[in-house]
Design a protein around this nucleic acid. Structure first.
Lengths: 194, 194, 194, 194
DNA sequence: CATGAATGAGGATTCATTCAT
DNA sequence: AATGAATGAATCCTCATTCAT
């Protein structure tokens, strides 16, 4: 791993373990085994380090999301693969999610950024647009809405897995059901609803 | 409003506008019109202020959630009231949502807290247990799972409303549909599905 | 005990246990069971409280020193009584000595105070002047010098008693010798010295 | 002088002039011509600065004590050299004495420290053990006791010199006598006394 | 007399950033 | 490129003192 990545990974670990607060540059330096001054060769400022880390993680997330995807497959299959890719990513390494949640609710994340081209939102929009166009998903709901909703539910199910995992003696079958429930919610609905 | 609440509200506003960073005690003092030292009469430390603010907001959230609830009503009606109460709460005053998102992903929120008696989780568990017991919700899914899932989706739909609201020129009808979609996902299912 | 004394005693205890630093007025208030404001009815300021405490303790020390003294007795007897009175006082309650040592080496204690009438130094000067005049003590040494020397040695022997007391398995006979050694040093010397 | 020593010396000066109070880090910084933050490169905290200063001074004191010492000399000569070394050290630079007096009577100095290996006490114990073994000092008194006693008396005579020095118009001869008096107290005694 | 909430200047400490080496 | 000592503004917190009740 090159120095720049080492610095970003150290920052990420620090944020996972000690929050956005607990990652002073001095500690980033120590944890990535470089001198404090060296960080400033790779990043103009701490803000820039955080911003680059954000983009680095977005790329990682998109990569994970589309692993094994194939637009020739039935959309339910594609949806399930997406779902499990994301869950795996978030469960295996909590740091990504934790970073993102803090990032989105911090002043680093401005409204402009949201509006601007965003790899991750673009990918999701396209993905769900495919499902709508192929007639396998509900029509009449914008893909942006579907994507935010689905992603929110994935994150929630990650929380369930992580926090309650052992404590609640929850059988895996139940947890697996969540994806089905969500699929039932977004799939093409037969006709009238109660 | 008493001084303690004034301090908490000032902190909350600061966190909304400038994130978990960006609320130095000096600014909390200024925004709540008390001297810096006064804060320490009411809170032992900044950490304690944050923790008390959390509990204060949880109480507010539970209050909002159960507004107009009545266990004699059909569960779909109760669900829709709950849904709209929550959305109203989170959309009208973004500060609660922003605080919570940051809080849950910060070191303030420990695993123990999750496990410990938690007003909000208790309320939600009881609520969804009612729906399961009355046969109006899917059986075979634990109420804890339903509550985390539903709440996660509410938060997501709040994000849609807030961030994309104007930009996307999204008609209100579509947004209203989300609750229906979720209801379709959690309601008693007719029979077997693939 | 009246309120004023209660405040002074609380201050003294605090200084013994936590040093000159660790006695904020708030804690003095708590430990003496009065409100913070009340202290300012009895003392103009913290400085004044410390100064009054000093004078209060000086009086206590003089009282202890002259307990059982009688200028008709042989001076060696008077000296031994004095010695044991002081040791008892300092060993039984370390706070007096600890306060004094810190006081003397703090800015509270000015050179003027040293020069000014000082009950305790006066008492000691008079005491040793008696010994010189009666021919039982060395001549040619000013009583001021004798008194500071003797008192310093008492304090040292208190330190021995307190710190090393148990640890060193020191027989009481040896400790008792110190007064004898000092007496040998200050008593009228026979004639030529080596 | 390196920066670490400059900081310690500035602290010492401040304590001499304004007591253990009266040396805020900001002033230590100013007096040692470094930035406030720099102090924390060399010392973890103010407490650690004080503790290191203590050890630094103990080393200085031991150095001074053994200056010109030679175990081939008669013990009286060694004793007199020791005495005058110490007096010189304490009188020439009052800061060491003032620091020590405050340090020993503050919570910085714990019982454990007293018990623990202590350069200074070790040196004194060895010194007086030599005198006892060579038969030039009283037997039957532990060297620890002799050392505490003698040192206490030196400190007292320093106080005499400093506080009363000019005021009392005390001839140097008298002051010089103190060492003789103490020597008379601790030297091998001719025979039994009442 | 007594209270204790309120004050705000001052103290210890942190931390992003710079710069001589 | 890399270092890490140095900086000093900013932060959290303390505490002597006041004053309305």
């Amino acid at each position: 791993m090159n120095k720049k990545e080492k610095i970003m990974e150290a920052t990420l670990d620090l944020i996972r373990d000690h929050g956005f607060h607990g990652c002073p540059m001095s500690m980033v330096a120590k944890n990535s085994s470089v001198a404090a001054g060296t960080i400033y060769h790779y990043f103009e400022s701490k803000d820039e380090l955080i911003m680059e880390l954000y983009h680095y993680l977005v790329a990682k997330v998109v990569d994970a999301a589309q692993s094994g995807d194939d637009d020739q497959l039935p959309f339910k299959e594609r949806f399930m693969r997406f779902w499990h890719n994301m869950k795996k990513l978030y469960v295996q390494d909590r740091s990504i999610h934790r970073f993102m949640e803090q990032f989105y609710n911090s002043p680093y994340f401005t409204e402009e950024m949201e509006m601007t081209d965003n790899q991750w939102h673009n990918w999701m929009r396209n993905f769900f647009t495919d499902g709508i166009n192929s007639g396998e998903l509900r029509s009449g709901v914008k893909p942006e809405i579907l994507s935010i909703m689905v992603h929110g539910t994935i994150l929630s199910s990650v929380k369930v897995t992580i926090y309650h995992g052992k404590k609640m003696d929850m059988d895996q079958i139940n947890l697996g059901h969540i994806a089905e429930i969500v699929w039932d919610g977004i799939k093409k609905q037969p006709e009238a609803k109660s």
